[in-house]
Design a protein around this nucleic acid. Structure first.
Lengths: 137, 137
DNA sequence: TCTTGACCTGAAGTGCGCTCCAGCACCTAG
DNA sequence: CTAGGTGCTGGAGCGCACTTCAGGTCAAGA
């Protein structure tokens, strides 16, 4: 698989793939006779997992640290498990935040519907600023 | 309330609050005789809501657009509702992603425990790269 | 054969979201 | 009355995560 194919399959750009390789997030692939990158299909699963980590808020530094442990093999299993456990806690917290916010957004939508129907005034309206003695506006 | 107090209450830095004001995310507060910002307690709810939007992935451009609509009052209720509804969809999608990832992370942790116990080999191990004819490494 | 498009490298540039700094004014507790 | 803390402004700087660019090489189809 050439870099353009991999980009098409992952949704990442060719530039992003080269960037990931440069920083060490993905291993340097073999090259063909013309010096072009040739990827093994196994890279797909790894990139998909990295995307999951990214989508759930893991920064590139941590993803890189994880990638480096992974490259060192089974001896780093404990460290990787600890990283994953820490990330799991963050994801769980974020999940909770998302759920609360979803409820809040639903309430907001209801409120806006009422405003639109003329049933209530805008409750988020800015209070008219009152002058303060000697204020230097 | 002075800016330092507001920073302490919100967890934002004094610089961040001034930055938010500069870009229009929060309204310019009144000033005291010495030219210092004096905040009304109502700013707290607004900042908390902005934090929710931010924590759930809404970028500063969209938060700013929302803030501008809000400042224009009740006539923008429909537009704000539509923004919130769009964001709701994104949050719902993200929530789903988080849940799937949480399961995946739990599986990973189990896998690492087994590797640590010596029960299995590292399934994420990199396949040994095979040479490609004429490769220019 | 020619041309077009995919690929290569190293380096510079971009947008976001702050964060820090210099150099100053002000207020208040000791 | 003075020292220290808090606040002010405008502007520079920063870390992240790419993205774009210049200036090429290479391969495969018409």
């Amino acid at each position: 698989m050439k870099i353009g194919d991999l980009a098409a399959r992952t949704g990442l750009s060719v530039d992003t793939l080269r960037y990931y390789e440069k920083i060490g997030l993905i291993p340097a692939p073999l090259r063909d006779a013309g010096g072009r990158r040739v990827y093994d299909a196994s890279i797909l699963r790894w990139l998909q997992f990295l995307e999951r980590l990214k989508a759930t808020g893991m920064g590139i530094r941590d993803r890189l640290a994880y990638a480096e442990l992974r490259a060192r093999g089974a001896e780093t299993a404990r460290e990787r498990r600890e990283m994953i456990e820490r990330h799991r806690q963050k994801v769980a917290a974020s999940l909770w935040e998302m759920q609360k916010t979803l409820e809040l957004l639903d309430e907001k939508v209801e409120t806006y519907r009422k405003i639109e129907a003329g049933e209530i005034e805008d409750p988020g309206a800015l209070p008219a600023p009152r002058a303060v003695k000697g204020a230097r506006t």
